Simulated assay, not measured.
Amino acid sequence: MDPEKGPQIIKVTPLQQMLSSCTGAILTSLIVTPLDVVKIRLQAQNNPFSKGKCFVYSNGLMDHVCVCEEGCNKAWYKKPGNFQGTLDAFLKIVRNEGIKSLWSGLPPTLVMAVPATVIYFTCYDQLTAFLRSKLGENEICIPIVAGTTARFGAVTVISPLELVRTKMQSKKFSYKELHRFISKKVSEDGWISLWKGWAPTILRDVPFSAMYWCNYEILKKWFCEKYGLYEPTFMISFTSGALSGSFAAVVTLPFDVVKTQKQTQLWTYENLKISEPLHMSTWIIMKNIVAKNGFSGLFTGLIPRLIKIAPACAIMISTYEFGKAFFRKQNSQRQQY
């Protein structure tokens, strides 16, 4: 097969793209979740979560705001421990509680990460193919436009689901009670209330996606040209994903800090049954952070974010590209017979 023409003829179907992204999301969650479990246990040890207090659980793909409504000591994030650091926490959790404890928060992670990632990556590939057919193969704006649009759509679709799932995590709800809660919220505040926290999420994730996909495509192309390859290998995708993800994570960290604080405040106001103040805009929160902690306050948690984002981006994109390459090979073999 002519290597220059083959990849243009052999296409991957949207269903195959969805399967590839689903596999990547599951694998990424399985590998990255223990990092967050350990981080949260260390946080709980130093600053125990009180009733109504929130913490943000993230696996590098999606964030999850968990509300400690009852303050129950049986919860996985409330288990006792005396940890001296990350490695010590890993070893003691495995020795005292079993290795399964490292994946304690996996179910809610998968509930959010899988649909969001499938929508995101499939939309990106479909938009990229469409734009390239209209504008040409080498337009640098294509990954920026496709990444921005895909992330905007994924965040908008998933946002109400995240709000509902967060409410279910705060307390045990039957589906009837959950339906009553949603109906009441919609009747009181309108449908727009289901998208609380959407704005700071967009401000963080859309620029992240634009920078990530632009840098990823540039790095991937550069590595392929350097080694004389038409398609990226697993290691090229892995390295390009880690580097581009790290750069985007650093630049967008201030919006991540604001988003975490805003979502936490939203749940605090809801739990205390008081109205949300009108001044809680993204820019006001950012201004308050700078006034209180200086400019460096906007980059709080840089190292933990990089430790999560770099491997998550690398594993996700390399698995996704590997899955597409696998299906492309299968489709090629079908065409030959």
Results as ranks from 00 to 15, higher is better:
Pro7Asn: 12
Arg41Phe: 07
Thr264Val: 06
Trp267Ala: 04
Cys66His: 11
Pro160Trp: 02
Ile182Ala: 05
Tyr269Trp: 07
Phe255Tyr: 08
Leu15Thr: 12
Tyr175Asp: 05
Ser275Val: 09
Ser50Gly: 15
Cys123Leu: 15
Asn331Arg: 07
Ile192Glu: 05
Ser296Asn: 07
Leu278Gln: 08
Gln333Val: 02
Ala116Gly: 02
Phe173Pro: 06
Thr156Tyr: 10
Glu139His: 09
Pro3Met: 05
Pro311Trp: 01
Cys68Gln: 04
Gln333Asp: 09
Leu163Ile: 09
Lys176Ile: 15
Cys123Asp: 05
Met211Cys: 11
Gln84Leu: 03
Gln265Ala: 11
Asp63Ser: 04
Ser332Lys: 14
Ile303Ala: 02
Lys167Glu: 03
Glu225Tyr: 03
Gln84Ile: 00
Asn73Met: 03
Pro107Gln: 07
Val67Asn: 00
Ala75Ser: 05
Pro80Thr: 01
Ser159Lys: 00
Gly24Asp: 14
Leu302Gln: 08
Phe247Val: 13
Ser275Pro: 01
Ile309Ser: 06
Phe299Val: 01
Tyr216Trp: 10
Ser246Tyr: 05
Leu302His: 06
Glu69Lys: 09
Cys66Phe: 11
Thr86Arg: 02
Ser101Ala: 04
Asn46Glu: 15
Ile309His: 02
Gly245Ile: 11
Ser332Phe: 14
Ile202Tyr: 06
Ile284Glu: 12
Ser246Ile: 09
Lys287Phe: 07
Leu253Cys: 00
Val114Phe: 11
Lys287Glu: 11
Asn271Gly: 00
Lys167Ala: 11
Lys167His: 08
Glu225His: 07
Thr109Ile: 15
Trp191Met: 04
Val157His: 01
Ser174Asp: 10
Val155Ala: 10
Cys66Ala: 14
Asp189Ala: 14
Cys72Gly: 04
Cys54Asp: 05
Val67Ile: 15
Met112Pro: 00
Ile144Pro: 00
Val65Asn: 09
Ser318Pro: 11
Ile99Asp: 03
Thr13Lys: 07
Trp195Pro: 06
Asp88Arg: 13
Trp76Met: 00
Ser275Met: 03
Gln17Val: 06
Ala310Val: 04
Ala314Tyr: 08
Gly60Lys: 06
Leu127Phe: 14
Gly301Lys: 06
